[in-house]
Simulated assay, not measured.
Amino acid sequence: MTQKLRIMLAEDHTILRDGLRALLMLDAGIEVVGEVDNGLSALRSIGSLRPDLVLMDLSMPKMDGLAAIREIKRRHPEVKILALTVHKTEEYIRAALNAGADGYVLKDASKAELMAAIRATSAGRLYLTPAVSETIVHRYLNGSAVQVQSRSEVLSVREREVLKLIAEGYRNKEIATFLCVSAKTVEKHRANLMRKLDLHNVSALTTFAIENGLVAR
């Protein structure tokens, strides 16, 4: 008997997650082994759920998809990750691929395209949605994409996580609990964020996080 492809869903919108599960369960060759609604839970669930592939939203609470992709690939390089997102700009595509995503497909894709993306990614082939400009893809694959570093790209993965949680209204002690670090470490990250971004209060940090897609508007 052919082994089923084990897929984990990482998506914070319940109705979309339910729809994806229902769609995937129609394929006899796929097993949905778990669902999470934030990047941190995705990272923590990989070891126990042992998926072959993760369908990963890029904009989620607690830890964004980009940070989750980096950490999952660092700890579990064998797991394939297909970014499933509304973002179609070059900045997001480049960031996802640089983080380690094995494919990139948009949420308005057809069922046929999503299944094609899953098959390609699970087989070890890079999949990029046809909706992405051929010019952007060509420039990226040939290493000639314009290298414009946004302010958010000067931040470390952990600093991005802390910024996201600050913008979502969590206090230092709560952030420390989420990230399994001390409150003092969180305070240090907060100070580094303000220094690197030249922003000096929570309101400014929150606005920056929203404008750069780290949290939902």
Rank of each mutant, 00 (worst) to 15 (best):
S110G: 01
S45Y: 10
S144Q: 10
S182K: 03
R44P: 01
T177L: 13
D102C: 03
A116P: 06
S110D: 07
L193D: 00
G34L: 07
V162R: 07
E168I: 14
E161R: 01
R217M: 06
E174M: 10
G103C: 09
L163I: 00
D102E: 09
H189Y: 13
L155W: 01
P51I: 12
I118P: 02
L128K: 02
M56W: 11
R21N: 04
F208S: 07
M194I: 06
A99S: 13
L53T: 11
H13A: 12
L155I: 03
A176L: 14
R158C: 06
L141S: 04
K73P: 08
Q147S: 13
L53W: 14
D52A: 07
V157C: 08
M63N: 09
G19F: 06
F178L: 11
A83V: 15
V181W: 05
R151D: 12
H200P: 10
T14W: 09
G34Y: 04
G47A: 15
V32G: 09
L106C: 08
R217A: 14
L23A: 08
G169H: 14
H87V: 00
E31L: 09
N201D: 15
A28D: 15
R50Y: 03
L49N: 01
H200C: 10
A116G: 08
A83Q: 00
N98Q: 12
A112N: 01
A204M: 07
A131K: 11
K196C: 05
I175M: 12
L82V: 01
K111L: 11
T185A: 04
G29C: 00
H76K: 10
T207W: 02
A120K: 08
S110F: 02
R94I: 13
A99N: 08
M8Q: 06
L97M: 14
D64R: 07
E90I: 11
S150C: 04
E211L: 15
L197C: 08
A22M: 05
E168L: 15
L141D: 05
A145S: 15
S59M: 09
T129G: 15
G47H: 13
G39L: 06
L197H: 09
A209G: 07
G34A: 02
L84E: 03
G34K: 02
Q147E: 14
G143T: 12
L214W: 05
L20K: 03
I81N: 03
R160V: 13
A117T: 05
V181L: 13
L5C: 00
M8H: 07
G65M: 09
T206K: 15
